[in-house]
Structures are given as structure tokens and as C-alpha cells.
Amino acid sequence: MTEPLLTAPPEATRPVRLGIHGAPHLASGIITAAGHDPQDVEFVPYDVAEPFRPLREHTADIMIVKYALREADIALSRPVAFDGRALIVAADHPLADRATVSVEEAARYDAFSCPGDFPPYVWDEVVPPRTPAGTPVRRVHPMTTVEGMVGILSTTRAVHLSFRSLEAILPPHIRAVPVHDLPPAPVTLAWLRDAPLHPKAAALVADAERGAERSTR
């Protein structure tokens, strides 16, 4: 592990509380690859506008994050998975029927702005302010909930540069089109740096790191 874990006294009867946003199947895959039973983990949904609140209020033991964090009170595992990039659009959008799409094409349409207390430096990875060719990305629509995003996508020509994992929870009238010129996002597990960690959560982090290493050999 990249950082030492402070282990709390055993709490054998309580499941690991894992913070997630969006579809749970990415988390389930990480748990299974770690050799753990998903039934032993309780998913704790977090608000994208306050992503670290469950950790800081001790209602989650660990959480799934993407890209590198620079939060002083939060420690990170090594990457435990990768999540491919996708453009989320309405089914009648001009890009909806494409097999793949370029971020340069996506930049022709309005995108979503950084929500609430979400770290802007991470949002710049999720929805880049400019494409590799230098085209500005118009980040104008408010990002609130998945339902709110779907409502905007359904009534406008807006697009959301997001992740393939989101596809599992999209309604039929919304599509996820793979983006071929943005690299997959590294997925890590995060926990409070100076707080004792539930022993099952510590084991899950360590086993998830080992599972990711095995998958790349």
C-alpha cells in the first residue's frame, strides 16, 4: 500500500462501508477481484457536490475515487481498476449512434461544470477545460445528481464526458458512447489519513491492490 493504515479495534459484525457514486458494479468488480464477498460490503452513496462528506463524517470507511487527489486529510491506495471514458448523450443526439467518439467532437456541444465542493483539479480530468487540440470545452450546465444530468441531456444537445461504468444505470433514452482519445481513469480507494480504519476495510484495500497487480501480470 502507498500509505500505512491505522487499524481500529475489531468490529467483526459490521460490514465495510464503501462510498460510491453512480453505478455499483465497478465497486462490485473491485471487491470480487480482491477475493471478498460483496455481501460483506455496504455501499454508501455520496453526493458528487460533497464527495468526501461520508469519509469526514465517518459514515463511510473507504470510498472509490478516480484520478489523483490532493486532499491533505485523505490517503489513497494504488490503482485498483481503470474506468474507460464515455460520452453520455441523449439517444437522439447526433453522436449517440457512433461506435466511438472523439473528445474533439464532444467539444462542439455544451458540457457540465464542476459541482459544489468537488475538487476542480479532478474535474479538469473528468471534463477537461480544453481538448488536446486546444478547443475550449464549454462547461456550462450544472452537475447535481445523475437524475438531474439525465434531465438536462434529455432536453438539450448537452453532453457529459464521463465513464463507461455509468452506462449500467442510465435509462434507455440515454446512451454512453466510448471516447477513444481520452485514457481510462485510474480508480483508487481512499480513506481518512489519520483515522483508525476498520480492519475489514484495511484488508479490502490491501487485497484490492494485490488483485489489481495480478490482473496486470
Rank of each mutant, 00 (worst) to 15 (best):
A206E: 13
R108Y: 11
D61T: 08
V127L: 00
A12V: 08
V179T: 04
L204S: 03
A49N: 08
A34M: 03
R157N: 11
L197Q: 05
P120Q: 11
E167I: 03
V101Q: 02
A185I: 08
V89D: 12
A68Q: 15
A12Y: 08
D37W: 05
A90N: 15
R193Q: 07
G22A: 09
I31T: 07
A202R: 11
V16G: 03
R214Y: 07
A75S: 14
P129R: 06
L161C: 01
L5S: 06
R17V: 10
E167N: 06
A133R: 09
D124Q: 04
T100N: 13
R17C: 11
S165F: 11
P129I: 00
L5Q: 14
P15L: 01
L166Q: 14
A212H: 13
D73H: 04
E147F: 05
A86V: 10
R56L: 04
P24G: 07
D194A: 06
G22S: 05
E147H: 11
E167S: 12
G148Q: 09
T156M: 04
V122W: 03
S215A: 15
H180R: 09
E105A: 12
V48A: 06
A208N: 06
H58Q: 15
I62R: 06
T13D: 13
T7P: 01
T155N: 14
E3R: 13
R108N: 14
C114M: 01
A203G: 14
E209F: 01
A90Q: 12
P94D: 01
F52N: 10
P115V: 00
V187A: 07
T156Q: 02
D92R: 12
R210I: 11
L197V: 04
A68R: 15
L95I: 06
V179D: 01
L26C: 05
P38F: 06
D73T: 05
G116P: 13
R108W: 10
V146Q: 09
E42V: 12
R53K: 15
V179L: 10
P196W: 00
V80E: 09
E147M: 09
L189Q: 03
R56Y: 03
Y121H: 12
A72K: 15
G35V: 13
V150C: 10
P4C: 03
R85V: 08
A72G: 11
T32R: 15
P79N: 12
G148F: 05
L69I: 12
R130L: 08
A75F: 05
P94T: 05
P196I: 00
S215I: 08
P120F: 06
V44P: 00
I31K: 03
A68Y: 15
V44W: 00
M149E: 07
E3A: 13
I174S: 00
L170A: 02
F112W: 01
A212V: 08
V127I: 09
R98N: 04
A8M: 04
